[in-house]
Amino acid sequence: MQTLAIIVNYKVAALTVEAARSVLESESLFPCRVVVVDNSEDAREESLLRFALPRGVDLVVPPDNLGFGQACNLVMENFSGDFILLLNPDARLLPGCLQRLQHVLLQEKKVAAAGPQVYWDDHCNYYLPPPSTPFMFLYAPVATKAPPGSWIKKYLGLFWRRHAIKTWRSEAPMEVRNLSGGHVLLKREALERAGGLFDPRFFLYFEDTDLFMRLRKAGYSLVFDAGARVVHHYDQSAQHDTEKKRQLFMESHEKFLEKHLTGGKLWIHKILGGLFLLCRENSDWEKIPVFTAPFRLEVPASVRKNWLFEWSPAPDFIPAAGMFGRGEYVDFSAEYWDMLAPGRYYGRLGGLSGKSLDRCRVCWDVREKVVMKERKMDE
Rank of each mutant, 00 (worst) to 15 (best):
C97R: 01
F68Y: 15
I84C: 03
L87Q: 03
A91S: 15
L85Q: 11
N73C: 11
V75G: 06
V75Y: 06
F83R: 12
L98R: 12
L98C: 12
L94S: 01
D82V: 02
D82S: 14
E77G: 00
G69W: 05
V75I: 15
Q70I: 01
F79H: 14
A91V: 06
A91Q: 07
F68I: 12
L85V: 06
C97W: 07
R92C: 05
L86I: 01
F83A: 06
L87V: 05
R92P: 01
M76N: 11
L86S: 11
L93D: 04
L85E: 01
D82H: 11
F68P: 00
Q70T: 12
C72M: 12
G69T: 12
L74Q: 07
G81C: 09
E77A: 14
C97G: 02
A71W: 08
A71M: 09
P89F: 00
N73Y: 05
N78P: 03
C97F: 04
E77Q: 13
D90Y: 03
F68W: 13
S80Q: 13
P95D: 10
V75N: 07
F83N: 04
L93Q: 11
L93K: 09
L98F: 12
N88Q: 15
E77M: 03
F79C: 08
V75A: 08
R92Y: 13
Q70L: 10
D82Q: 13
S80H: 09
Q70V: 08
A71Q: 11
L87H: 04
N78C: 07
R92H: 13
V75P: 09
N73P: 05
F83W: 08
L98H: 11
D82N: 12
E77C: 00
I84P: 00
V75S: 10
G81F: 02
A71P: 06
R92D: 00
E77F: 01
G69N: 09
C72G: 09
G96Q: 09
Q70K: 14
F83D: 08
I84W: 00
G69Q: 14
Q70P: 03
S80K: 12
D82Y: 01
I84G: 01
R92M: 09
A71E: 02
L94Y: 00
M76R: 13
L87G: 01
A71V: 05
D82W: 03
N73S: 12
N88V: 00
R92A: 06
G96E: 07
N78A: 14
F83P: 01
S80P: 07
A91W: 00
D82G: 14
D90E: 15
A71F: 05
P95S: 08
P89G: 06
F83V: 00
C72V: 15
G69H: 02
P95T: 05
M76S: 09
G96M: 03
L98P: 09
N73V: 08
C72Y: 04
Q70R: 15
L98G: 10
L93R: 11
L87R: 04
L87T: 04
A71N: 06
I84V: 15
L74I: 02
S80W: 04
N88P: 02
F79K: 11
N78V: 04
I84T: 05
F83K: 06
E77S: 04
G69C: 13
D90H: 08
N73M: 07
F68C: 04
A71H: 06
